[in-house]
């Protein structure tokens, strides 16, 4: 066993410190050390997107990052999407309203990918949505309702004046 190191980073708006081993992935530290199990493991090699998180606002697979690589950086996981008063992020609400999940295991990853997309392209086309979600596999829905939910959020937000971001990142 190698020496454990202290990892300090900003997680969902809060500064966190956790002991981890050098070979632990960010996904393992989130799930096993911090007990944040909303980030899912579907394949562990970057092919399914279930573990997607935003690292300094950039969409990444947490299974392909060593935890120590995020030293001093800022991370958003699905647990940080809703507002602290419990109000769901518009994407979370849209996924519910559109029945865009069946089993729900891929949903956290999709939500993070969709957020990354809308942060960069507030009014995407359908093909842009599909491109940004292509790294997230869903086996239940055929993607139809997921794509509609994301497009619906984009249209709704475009029709409204900008408001304070629902998320700390």
């Amino acid at each position: 066993m190698r020496k454990k190191s202290v990892l300090e980073f900003t997680l969902n708006g809060e500064t966190r410190a956790v002991l981890c081993e050098p070979q632990q992935t960010l996904l393992e530290v989130l799930r096993d050390e911090l007990r944040l199990t909303g980030t899912k493991e579907g394949c562990s090699n970057g092919n399914c997107g279930a573990c997607n998180v935003l690292l300094d606002g950039v969409l990444v697979n947490s299974c392909l990052i060593l935890a120590l690589e995020v030293q001093g950086r800022t991370l958003l996981t699905v647990e940080g999407l809703a507002r602290s008063d419990g109000t769901l992020h518009p994407l979370q609400q849209a996924f519910l309203d559109h029945a865009a999940l069946q089993c729900g295991i891929c949903t956290p990853g999709f939500l993070l990918s969709a957020k990354a997309l809308l942060d960069e392209h507030p009014l995407p086309t359908e093909s842009q949505v599909r491109f940004w979600l292509a790294g997230n596999l869903c086996r239940c829905t055929g993607y139809d309702k997921i794509v509609r939910a994301v497009l619906d959020v984009a249209r709704t937000q475009a029709a409204q004046p900008p408001s304070v971001s629902a998320t700390p990142v």
Binding site: G46, G49, N52, L55, V58, L59, V60, N61, L64, I65, S113, A116, L117, F131, W132, A134, G135
Partner: peptide, 9 residues
């Protein structure tokens, strides 16, 4: 190369 999340790394 890869999808969006791979591109980020």
């Amino acid at each position: 190369i890869g999808g969006v999340q791979i591109q980020g790394r």
